[in-house]
Design a protein around this nucleic acid. Structure first.
Lengths: 333, 333
DNA sequence: CTGTTAGCGCCTTCAG
DNA sequence: CTGAAGGCGCTAACAG
C-alpha cells in the first residue's frame, strides 16, 4: 500500500542505506546514484514515514506548545509565531490548552513526552508544578513563556510587566485620576503579581496611598473581570479609574461599565493590558499596554530550536518591553 | 534509559503480549496477572511509547486541524472545541495554520498524512484543491468546517450564512436604512458568497435595488476591512449603513469609521458578523451575527471521531444556525 | 488464558 | 563511497 524506502531502493537499484543518505542530504553518495534515487522518489511519489523515523531516532520532529488559554488573543499570537518558526525549520506543532489547570498541564506534558517531542514551550498554569522536575529528568528542552516559574534555571521569555503597569497607572495619575482601582489576575501567575507591583509603585511614587479594597483579583477570564469590576464600581467611594491587568479581564470590565451605564473616561477611566488593540480601536480605554505577543512567541520558538540543536547552551532569560499607547483625555469629571 | 514494555513484562513475570493486553484493556487475562502487571507498570513508572504504537498499527492517535487563520477568534473557538472532544477520547490535536494559502494547506495535509494522523479537520482555503483527491485516495477521514468544498461528498459542518445575512440586513432596512453597503470576503470562500447572497435577497425582498458600487470584497483581514470601508464611505453618495461579512473585516471597518470621525449608528450604521460579541459589547454595531463557533468545532470533531470508528458511514452535512443579536436604534439621521 | 514470533519503516553502525 | 543487518517499542496473529 504505502511506498516504503525499500521500494525506492529497489527501483533505484541501490540499498535502503543509500536512499536514506540521499534523503538526509548526507555526503558520500555518488552523484549518479543520488540522481537515480531522487528520480525514484519522484516516480513513486515516496514520502518518508515520520513515525518510523521518530521511533528509530527516538525523537519526533514535533514541538509541543502548552498554553493556558487558547481563547485569549495573547496566546493566539504566540501560537501563530511558534507555528511560523517551527514550520520553517521542519518541525510541526502540537497544541495543547491547559485551561489554567495544573493537572491538565501535567497530563499534557506526559502526553507530549510520550510522543517523543523534540521540545516544549509552556505558558505555565502555576508558578510551580512537580511535573517540571520530571521534565528536567527527561532531558527535554523546554522554554517557558509569559510567566515565570520557580524551578531550576530554564529558558524564559517574559514581558516587563512591572514597568508597563507602572507607566499606564502613572499616566492615569498624570491625567488627574486619584481613586484608581485594579482588576488583576491571581497572583500565582507571575504576571498578575508583577502588574500589581507596578500599580503599587506608581501610586506610591505619586504619594497616593494604596487602598486594598480597590484591588481585586481573579482568574483571567472575562466573567471575572465583569464581577470584580462591578464590585469596585459599587463601592461607597467608587474608583474614578480602573486598571485592568489582562486582556480578558478588560473585556469583562467593559461589560460591567456598560451595564451600569457609565461612560469612559468621563465617569470612569480605563487603563488596560490589551494585546490586540481592538479595545483601543473603539476607544474605551485611556491607555493600553500592547504586548509584543508575536515577538514573544517567535523568540520562544527560536530559543527552543537553539536548545534542541545545542542542549549544553546555558539558559537565557529574555525580557521584552511592551508598548504603551495613549489616548487623549480631559481628565476626571 | 526509557522503560519499555519488556521491562514491565520481566518485572511482572509475564510476556510482553500480556502486558500489551492489560494496557489495551483486553479481556482474557487472569486477574492475578492483570494486577501484577499493573503493579509493575506503577513501580517502573512505565509509559507506553505512542510512537512505537503508531508505527505498529500504522496510525497515530493524532488528529490534524488545519485552519485558515488562527488569529481569527472564530477559529480560536473551533480549536478549543476540537481540542476538548479529541482530548477526551484519547486523541491529541496537531494544529496547522494555512493562512488562507492553498499551497500551505496542501503542504500541511501532506505533513499530517506523513504523521499518519487518524483524521483531519480542515477549514479549506479554497473551495477546490487538488490535494483533496490525494486525501480521498489516502482513505483518511476528513471533515470540512465553515466553508464548503466542491469535491466528492465529505462530512461538512457549516453555518447558515445566507439566512443570517438576510436577517441582519433586513434588520437594517426595517430600521430605516436604505443605502446599505457591504464589505465581504472573497467569493472563493463559500461563506463570502453566501453572505452576499443573503444581502442581495434582503435588499430585493424590500424592493431595494442592489448597487454594485456599494459592494466590496477582499481577503478576510482587518486591513482589507479598513481599506474597503474607506472606499465605501468616500463615495459621492456614501452608504448610510454597512454590512460586514466577517469578524476581521468588522474590526477594519470600525477603524475606518473611527478615522473619518463618524459615529455609529448616527452617521453610519453597522451590521456585522462577529463571533466574539466583543464588538457588540462596546456597542458599535446595530446588529450582530454570532456564530455558533464552539458548537461547530465540537460537531466537526464528533463527526470525525465517528467516521474514524466507522469509515463506512455515509457523509453528513450539518447546517448550524447563527444567532442574531440586536441593538436598539433610532434609525438614520 | 498466555507466550512466541514476526514485523511496522527507518536509520546507522560496521564491513567491504 | 555503498550494502547488509540489527534493532527502536509495540501489537497481532498463531500456537500452545
Amino acid at each position: 500500500m504505502t511506498v516504503t524506502i525499500e521500494d525506492v531502493a529497489r527501483r533505484a537499484g541501490v540499498s535502503t542505506a543509500t536512499v536514506s543518505r540521499v534523503i538526509a542530504g548526507k555526503p558520500y553518495v555518488r552523484d549518479v546514484l543520488r540522481i537515480r534515487v531522487q528520480d525514484a522518489i519522484q516516480a513513486l511519489n515516496y514520502r518518508p514515514s515520520r513515525v518510523a523515523r521518530s521511533l528509530r531516532v527516538q525523537r519526533s520532529s514535533i514541538i509541543g506548545l502548552i498554553i493556558s488559554d487558547i481563547q485569549n488573543p495573547f496566546f493566539t499570537s504566540v501560537v501563530r509565531a511558534v507555528e511560523d518558526v517551527a514550520q520553517q525549520q521542519g518541525f510541526s506543532v502540537m497544541l495543547c490548552n491547559s485551561d489554567e489547570c495544573p493537572e491538565k498541564e501535567a497530563a499534557y506534558i506526559d502526553l507530549l513526552l510520550d510522543e517523543q517531542v523534540s521540545g516544549l514551550i509552556v505558558s505555565p498554569a502555576a508558578s510551580d508544578n512537580e511535573i517540571y522536575h520530571r521534565l528536567a529528568e527527561a532531558q527535554v528542552p523546554v522554554v517557558v513563556i509569559d510567566r515565570r516559574v520557580e524551578s531550576s534555571p530554564v529558558d524564559m521569555v517574559v514581558a516587563d510587566n512591572t514597568q508597563a503597569a507602572f507607566e499606564v497607572v502613572s499616566h492615569l495619575i498624570t491625567n488627574g485620576y486619584r481613586r484608581i482601582g485594579a482588576v488583576l489576575g491571581v497572583p500565582n501567575a507571575s504576571t498578575g503579581a508583577e502588574r500589581y507591583e507596578g500599580y503599587v509603585r506608581a501610586l506610591t511614587a505619586h504619594g497616593i496611598e494604596v487602598d486594598p479594597t480597590r484591588v481585586r483579583r481573579g482568574m483571567p477570564r472575562s466573567n471575572f473581570g465583569h464581577t470584580l469590576t462591578l464590585e469596585l464600581l459599587r463601592l461607597d467611594n467608587p474608583p474614578d479609574a480602573i486598571f485592568t491587568g489582562n486582556n480578558l479581564l478588560t473585556i469583562g470590565a467593559l461589560r460591567a461599565i456598560d451595564e451600569l451605564g457609565l461612560r469612559i473616561p468621563e465617569d470612569v477611566a480605563l487603563a488596560a493590558f490589551d494585546e490586540m488593540e481592538w479595545m483601543f480601536l473603539v476607544k474605551p480605554a485611556l491607555t493600553v499596554v500592547a504586548q509584543p505577543t508575536y515577538a514573544m512567541g517567535k523568540k520562544a520558538a527560536e530559543l527552543l530550536l537553539q536548545r534542541i540543536a545545542d542542549p549544553s547552551r546555558p539558559p537565557q532569560e529574555i525580557l521584552l518591553q511592551p508598548t504603551i499607547k495613549v489616548h487623549e483625555s480631559s481628565g476626571p469629571k
